[in-house]
Design a protein around this nucleic acid. Structure first.
Lengths: 233, 233
DNA sequence: AACCATATCCGATAATTTTTCGGATTTATC
DNA sequence: GATAAATCCGAAAAATTATCGGATATGGTT
């Protein structure tokens, strides 16, 4: 199925969906599961509103309607709580992609879907997205622990989608798939960041679709210099 | 000089260089100025290493070789200290650009210089860049205060550079200059983030130059759909 | 070189926030 | 309805940020 040994997008996305699925939590009582969920939900909203640094555990506890110390029954520290957030919905994102991607006929359509779904998912989960994109994603602590892995997954799948298109001959073998992936990730992140911070563009999905159409063509241009390029000196 | 009322890149960059220049601090003694500098320098390193949330004021004070309470003689809070950092070298960046840009013959060369200098400046000031790009830039608190303005400046100048090229006929009037600017900013940010976090690519400036050549051509393609575009259903 | 006014320094203490602990309460099972 | 395990939560400790005011240093003046 795959010419080289590298796993394809379907394998990677499937694994990611499974890896970030909500764990079974064996042995726990119903009450406990619900309570943990309530705390997590409250945390998303408080962190999204105040930022992780400014947010106080008391506020989260109050918002959740539980006493302060109960927060610590479920999360060892404020930081752990913050970094547990991304994972909560990451699995759902990958699952949604896996549900829709196989129906797409071409690598290009899947790539388009992947980028589009990234923005759409953020639009549907704005508080979660604020915490992920504004507080956690680009953060010094990301290199430690699960969060980093979840972000690596995102990039790895994108690279696999690009490679798939190359192998199917939909676009030429690029000089650097990672460079292409960086441009895609960076462009989408940028539009999400401005939307989350300033509510611009007003219509996120229209702007995202337009941007996707604008950046996809770089798959065809393998670093061709512009016509009248003048070297700076 | 400018057809519409909008200020050109030179005006904007000049103002930015002045706005973020280190203030004169009238009335202060030499000792004090030096001490403030020492504290700021220590803060950059500690924040870059630990992240703003984990960093402790005591560590900054120790690193600076001053007692804890002296930090508060210069900055009202840890947060204020953190958000004072970007401004410290922002002015220098804009000044460097203003020193070099006028010698460039075309709008394209100036645009290339602007993007290139952004990465080069981060490379030369890695601790500062870590704090700016990984901790502050995409942060919920950014919308308040000076930091936000300093980032707006960056985008505004980029848009002005793009408009300049349109007016000089170097590339067609794009459908959306802000979209183009988002792609440029996002791509450069992305490459900087991975470099700061993972030290990849090994050679930042080579990768940046290659990426610039890759993204500049989108100035010519005004959102032309790819050949065999298939709408996803 | 002694003096003064002002600016700066820093130890001690307060205020805030995070985190821990252990007995009381609830739940599931028989 | 008795028992063991899981869960809850008030109260107190630990860690961290922030304040305050007298002690010390600086620069200018005579």
């Amino acid at each position: 199925m795959n010419k080289v040994g590298e796993p394809g997008w379907a394998t990677l996305a499937g694994e990611a969906a499974r890896r970030w699925a909500v764990p079974e939590q064996s042995g726990k009582q119903d009450r406990s599961r619900r309570r943990q969920q309530v705390i997590l939900e409250a945390a998303v909203h408080v962190f999204a509103r105040d930022g992780i640094t400014r947010a106080r555990i008391v506020d989260i506890a109050t918002q959740a309607g539980v006493p302060l110390s109960s927060v610590y029954d479920y999360y060892p520290s404020k930081e752990d709580l913050a970094y547990a957030l991304p994972a909560t919905r990451m699995g759902q994102f990958y699952a949604e992609f896996m549900a829709k991607a196989p129906a797409e006929p071409t690598a290009e359509a899947r790539l388009r879907l992947y980028l589009w779904l990234t923005a759409d998912f953020a639009r549907r989960n704005p508080a979660w997205a604020r915490v992920l994109y504004l507080e956690i994603w680009p953060s010094i602590i990301v290199t430690e622990g699960d969060v980093g892995r979840s972000i690596d997954d995102f990039a790895r799948i994108l690279v696999a989608l690009i490679r798939d298109g190359e192998q199917r001959g939909e676009w030429p073998e690029g000089p650097d798939r990672y460079q292409t992936a960086s441009i895609f990730i960076g462009s989408i992140s940028q539009i999400l960041i401005t939307w989350l911070l300033y509510a611009r563009p007003r219509n996120l999905m229209a702007a995202t679709s337009a941007m996707i159409e604008r950046i996809l063509p770089i798959l065809d241009l393998a670093s061709a210099p512009r016509h009248a390029a003048i070297s700076s000196g």
